[in-house]
Simulated scan of single mutants.
Amino acid sequence: MSEAGAEAEEHRAGWFELFFDLVFVVTVAVLARGLHGDPDAAAFGTFLVLFFPAWWAWVNLMLTVNVFGSAGPRVQGMLVAAMPGLGLMAAAAPEGLHSRAWAYALGAAWVRFAAFGLWYGRARRPDNALPVWRPVSYCLVTGGIWAVSAAVPNPGRFVLWGLAIGVEVVLLMASTGAGWELYDELSIDHLVERISLFVVIVLGESVFTLVVAFTDHFTGPSGATALLGFLVVAELAMVFFLWGTTGASRGLGRAQESRAIRAMRDSVMYLPFVLVSGITVIAAALGTAVDHPEHHLPPGARWALCGGVLAFYTANAAISLRFGDPPGMVLRWYVPALALVAVVLVPASVLLPAWAAVGCSAAVVFALAKLAKYRARLRLPGT
Rank of each mutant, 00 (worst) to 15 (best):
S2I: 09
E3F: 07
E10Y: 06
G14Q: 15
F19Q: 05
F20S: 05
L22E: 07
F24W: 11
T27P: 00
A29Y: 04
V30R: 12
A32Y: 00
G34K: 03
G34N: 13
F52E: 10
W55Q: 10
W56T: 07
N60T: 09
L61Y: 11
M62N: 01
M62S: 10
L63N: 14
F68A: 08
S70F: 08
A71L: 14
G72D: 08
V75D: 03
Q76G: 15
L86C: 05
L86V: 15
G87K: 05
L88M: 15
M89C: 15
A90N: 09
R100D: 12
A101P: 01
A108M: 14
W119S: 02
R122T: 06
R122W: 14
A129S: 12
W133L: 08
T142K: 04
G144W: 09
P153T: 04
P153F: 04
R157M: 02
F158M: 09
F158H: 09
G162S: 00
L163D: 01
L163F: 12
I165E: 13
I165T: 07
V167L: 13
E168N: 15
L171K: 05
A174Q: 13
G179C: 00
L182N: 11
L182Y: 08
H190F: 12
L191V: 03
V192E: 14
R194A: 08
V202N: 01
G204L: 07
G204D: 09
T209F: 02
T209E: 07
L210D: 09
L210K: 10
V212S: 13
H217A: 09
S222C: 05
F230Q: 02
F230N: 02
E235P: 01
F240W: 13
F241S: 08
T246V: 11
T246K: 10
T246H: 12
A248H: 02
R254E: 11
Q256W: 00
S258C: 00
M269C: 04
S277C: 14
A284Q: 04
T288Y: 12
P293V: 10
E294G: 06
E294Y: 06
P299M: 05
G307F: 06
G307S: 09
V309M: 06
Y313Q: 06
N316R: 10
G328I: 06
W333V: 11
Y334I: 11
L338P: 03
A342V: 15
L345W: 12
A348I: 07
V350A: 14
L352K: 05
P353N: 11
A354S: 13
A354F: 11
A354E: 10
A356H: 03
V358T: 09
G359E: 00
A362S: 12
V365W: 07
Y374E: 12
R377Q: 13
L378A: 14
L380M: 15
P381G: 12
T383H: 12
